[in-house]
């Protein structure tokens, strides 16, 4: 299973970079850092649909770091929620694949995001509702690390702990970089795990590119029996998989990839020259 997921994640990375290249803008760094997390969630952890007709899962997923939309779209294509060819429409006029997830364009998106801090609150509201409805459906939200600087995240953290929402899992894509520089340079987050603990959450730290570890902890969080929500702090590498992007804030975005950068990125992700050509027939 984990080998299959590795292969899928690799394909999703390529598809996401391909779509950002055609969009002429986007956020490759934070897209590549969260692909493994999204792949495990969508292909292994989120429950299949039985109750929520028209959706992709009975569980809920919210991309609170909405600028990673190309990763969400690519993983959606891998799940058959859309055609791969549609990814080429990213950020284009009349396309459903808006720069940030937009529920008015894509019905399987739970809520529009793109302004940091809001997605975790919406997820919290869904989790509270599922409790009121005695429903076993779980709610996941993926946050960026820079997003931790938004006060609303901590409002939501306090609310979720107070309401004992053990059906909520927050995942932090902790790539240590934000738009302009490192977290440490902008407004340091550490000790991040202690902050969440102090807010009444259970904390798990994991290598966000270790598929096995992600599977284990994401599954465990779905069966959280404690009376508190769980945060999974996933240590990741911004730009993961493309050597010249890794750990460099410049690739946070929103960047235009030149033809050469695109080709180099695809080669770094394991595409052959022939495969790069074939992308143009998708």
């Amino acid at each position: 299973m984990s080998h299959q997921l590795d292969t899928l994640a690799s394909q999703i990375r390529k598809d996401a970079i391909w779509s950002i290249y055609h969009a002429k803008s986007g956020h490759p760094g934070g897209v590549l850092s969260c692909v493994d997390i999204l792949t495990v969630l969508f292909h292994d952890v989120l429950a299949p649909v039985e109750k929520r007709l028209g959706s992709y899962s009975d569980d809920f997923f919210i991309l609170s770091k909405g600028h990673a939309a190309p990763a969400l779209y690519a993983v959606a294509a891998s799940k058959g929620l859309c055609e791969r060819a549609q990814l080429k429409g990213l950020r284009k006029i009349e396309s459903s694949f808006q720069g940030h997830p937009d529920v008015t364009h894509l019905p399987w998106v739970e809520v529009s995001t793109g302004s940091l801090g809001q997605g975790i609150s919406v997820a919290t509201g869904i989790a509270k509702s599922q409790k009121l409805l005695n429903s076993a459906q779980h709610v996941f939200a993926l946050l960026g690390d820079g997003e931790m600087q938004e006060g609303q995240v901590w409002e939501a953290a306090m609310f979720a702990a107070h309401h004992k929402l053990n059906n909520l899992t927050a995942i932090v894509d902790y790539n240590k970089l934000q738009s302009d520089a490192s977290n440490d340079d902008i407004c340091a987050l550490e000790p991040l795990a202690d902050k969440w603990r102090a807010f009444g959450w259970q904390v798990v730290e994991v290598d966000g590119h270790d598929i096995d570890a992600l599977q284990q902890h994401l599954h465990a969080s779905k069966h959280n029996k404690a009376q508190s929500p769980m945060v999974i702090i996933a240590h990741t590498i911004k730009g993961k998989g493309v050597d010249f992007m890794e750990d460099i804030p410049l690739w946070h975005g929103s960047v235009t990839l030149t033809d050469k950068q695109y080709e180099d990125a695809m080669l770094a992700l394991g595409c052959s020259a022939q495969e790069i050509k074939e992308y143009e027939n998708v």
Binding site: S129, Q152, E155, F159
Partner: peptide, 23 residues
């Protein structure tokens, strides 16, 4: 009745999540 504490930004987005759940 859902008490959100003195945190209006969270309250508004929580409400969006509750509306999404059919309330």
């Amino acid at each position: 009745f859902v008490q959100c504490g003195i945190a209006e930004q969270n309250m508004v987005s929580v409400a969006a999540g509750m509306a999404h759940s059919g309330f």
